[in-house]
Design a protein around this nucleic acid. Structure first.
Length: 298
DNA sequence: TTTGGGCATTGGGGTGCAGT
DNA sequence: ACTGCACCCCAATGCCCAAA
């Protein structure tokens, strides 16, 4: 059949097939993603190539590669599907008045509730969903458009993520152990039992790195992602723990345990992050505005 | 040389629509 | 109502090629 320039993309599904195959660099994986058979994709891509009048993909070793022309078509396909994605999430956003926030357990506990209260006072009817995980997991989910916004501890960000620094809380070392002086050197903590957050946590990695570069080996006596659990253990005198300032200020005031001053300036960065192409969503804009207007970290 | 992963082809089944 | 057409899809199979 003669390709006709006035009707170049007759079949949306074919473009979708091509787009996913190019994205996955594989017919099989794309088929899996689209819940179609590999043969279906193969035929749909062929059909698209026929309509356009030139090949889009070529076989290289064990991978599928875009031809030069395929690259051009792919860039258009990308914007088509990005636009569709925006459409879908905008529709969802309007329909459900929902915002999904990914954050760490500690931030979820001590900071996020305050944020939600402010947000909802500005926009009643807003539905807020809070999810917790480690910073890197949250980023993955933001990248997949599962969450609108992340409030996380700073780590490596992908290029298409926007980050807004919102706080730089000092990490406070707390114990319930009368034997420990009010101020000690980092070296004095060698072998001292310390309760850390779970492996993979940015704060944990940071602390291990800070001790590591001073050549101090610490004794991890327990691990938990839950700040209240860690506090409970500290309270029982099981060991010391590091908390971002906002998480322990009240406990220190109430004398549940005490802070041990360290010479090192230990701190983490808290950022609000979101995908670049979601910056214009109302819920995202409102959220960012709220964060710019108020200091939730006191 | 064998094996297995990955794409293309084949043959078959289905739907919806338009013209008769 | 019947028929042809364009499109949707699948399982099975064939074929190629790289790694073992």
């Amino acid at each position: 059949m003669e390709p006709h320039h006035s009707n170049p993309i007759q079949y949306f599904n074919h473009l979708k097939a091509f787009y996913y195959v190019a994205l996955c660099e594989s017919f099989t994986r794309a088929a899996d993603k689209l819940s179609l058979s590999q043969s279906t994709l193969s035929i749909q891509v062929q059909s698209l190539e026929q309509q356009l009048g030139f090949p889009l993909l070529k076989q290289n070793k064990r991978r599928v590669e875009l031809t030069e022309e395929g690259n051009i078509i792919f860039s258009y396909a990308k914007s088509v599907f990005a636009t569709l994605d925006d459409l879908a999430s905008a529709a969802d956003d309007i329909r459900k008045r929902k915002i999904k926030i990914g954050t760490t357990p500690t931030l979820a506990q001590y900071i996020v509730p305050k944020v939600i209260r402010k947000l909802r006072s500005g926009e009643s009817g807003l539905k807020v969903h809070i999810f917790t995980g480690q910073s890197r997991e949250v980023i993955d989910r933001i990248k997949n458009y599962e969450y609108h916004i992340g409030i996380i501890t700073r780590c490596e960000y992908p290029r298409d993520l926007i980050s807004l620094p919102v706080a730089k809380p000092k990490l406070r070392f707390v114990v319930n152990d009368p034997r420990l002086a009010a101020a000690v050197d980092m070296e004095d903590l060698a072998g001292y039992p310390i309760i850390l957050t779970d492996p993979g946590s940015v704060t944990r990695d940071y602390l291990l790195q800070e001790f590591g570069k001073r050549g101090i080996s610490i004794k991890i006596c327990a691990e938990s992602e839950n700040a209240e659990i860690v506090k409970g253990m500290v309270n029982l005198g099981m060991g010391g723990a590091f908390f971002p300032a906002f998480a322990v200020e009240e406990d220190l005031r109430e004398g549940r345990f005490r802070e041990i001053a360290l010479p090192a300036d230990l701190c983490v960065h808290i950022d609000v992050v979101y995908m670049k192409d979601r910056k214009n969503l109302t819920v995202v804009r409102n959220f960012v505005e709220t964060f710019k207007k108020h200091n939730f970290f006191r």
